[in-house]
Write a protein that binds this DNA or RNA. Structure first.
Lengths: 205, 205
DNA sequence: AGAAATATCTACTGGTGAGTTTATAAATAT
DNA sequence: ATATTTATAAACTCACCAGTAGATATTTCT
């Protein structure tokens, strides 16, 4: 296989990936603004300057597009968690770092998270189970981190599972009220909410 | 007008109210389980043993049924707030009472809250604005309560608005994970989460 | 340049479900 | 008992939209 063929193939893949990414981005904006069922593939096409069959050339169905968006939203939180758990730090240090990355990720990906939260009933059951499993995995790992902190005498709470769900909720819910044009810049908001989390678990300091 | 006529009229109204309530209850279960768009009025009728025009005799449209459900979900939280604010108590005492009533109300009305959270894009704009206004009112009042606690030296937080949104989120989000068959009985869960809220605002004790 | 493969569009299909119309049954009043 | 009103049902309409087939343009390869 000549080099030019390889390059052409690589380019074609890149073009296809770009088209997929742009389609997803358009769908995110429209699903977020109007809801999944109120958004037609025709409308997504219009916002891209193409027609419906263009989308079908890159996605098998409307619901596959939705599954892609929902996965991405949760994956960000999962990556924040996993990136912190591999570090050699105390539970308190891990919780601080996790809070910062988790909150910042939710603020950035608020549209994806909103869409997953709202549209879960429109996913195929298999996709829902997979993506919801990612969420449960996050909760399990956070519970483990909190339990480690309790055992180390760093956190003063009773029930690490309820605390993990409460932390997950207070942060995830930010998609409901956060506005990019709001009073606080994202990094200030991250700092404020991080402090609230540390308060909540009664970090010794 | 003879007494019998008055009675008959009263009975008829009661019957109509009962039919409305049963219809709403059936819709709550189905919207919660399958989503608003995936639930037909025919299906709601089937679960009641009636047909579609029965529903149209009591509701102007499917979306009016949805608005009813969403209003009720938020109204419970609003009532919890207003019932506490009229009492002559310290900010700490008010926050404790509010937490208990708010959390218990969310657990009880989790389906209504889930439906409002998921289906807001399907509401008529006027209904959405009204119901969302109720939510904002709750946040404003909670912010005020927290600010009063800060001013009284009872709470050790910087930003009462971010704290109010965080408390609202950690509690509201419970609809995502709470199951009636779960590990903790509702009253235990209320007690745990209440403690987390008090921790979060660094109540002096 | 011409052939083959790929990408995209135009136009269509089929199913669905909200809301309505018209008919019928039940309750109420006289 | 009969007339009148009210509640409910059976059957219909109309618009919408996901997904597809076939036509056309564009790119890639030789």
């Amino acid at each position: 296989m000549p080099a030019s063929a390889t390059q052409a193939l690589g380019l074609r893949d890149e073009v296809a990936a770009l088209k997929r990414a742009r389609t997803v981005a358009a769908a995110v904006d429209l699903f977020y603004e109007n809801g999944y069922e109120n958004t037609t593939l025709e409308t997504i096409g219009q916002s891209l300057g193409v027609t419906k069959p263009f989308i079908y050339a890159h996605f098998r169905s409307k619901v596959e597009l939705l599954a892609d968006i929902c996965s991405r939203g949760i994956a960000t939180s999962q990556e924040a968690m996993d990136s912190v758990l591999t570090l050699d730090l105390t539970p308190t240090e891990k919780l601080i770092l996790l809070s910062e990355r988790f909150i910042a990720g939710v603020l950035e990906n608020r549209k994806h998270i909103a869409i997953f939260s709202r549209e879960e009933k429109n996913l195929m059951p298999a996709d829902f189970d997979r993506i919801n499993g990612m969420r449960r995995d996050f909760d399990r790992k956070l519970t483990g981190l909190l339990r480690a902190g309790i055992d180390a005498g760093e956190f003063g709470i009773d029930d690490p599972h309820v605390a993990a769900l409460s932390i997950g909720g207070m942060v995830s819910w930010a998609y409901v009220w956060y506005r990019a044009t709001g009073r606080l810049a994202p990094d200030k908001l991250v700092a404020e909410m991080k402090e609230l989390i540390l308060n909540m678990v009664r970090v010794k300091r």
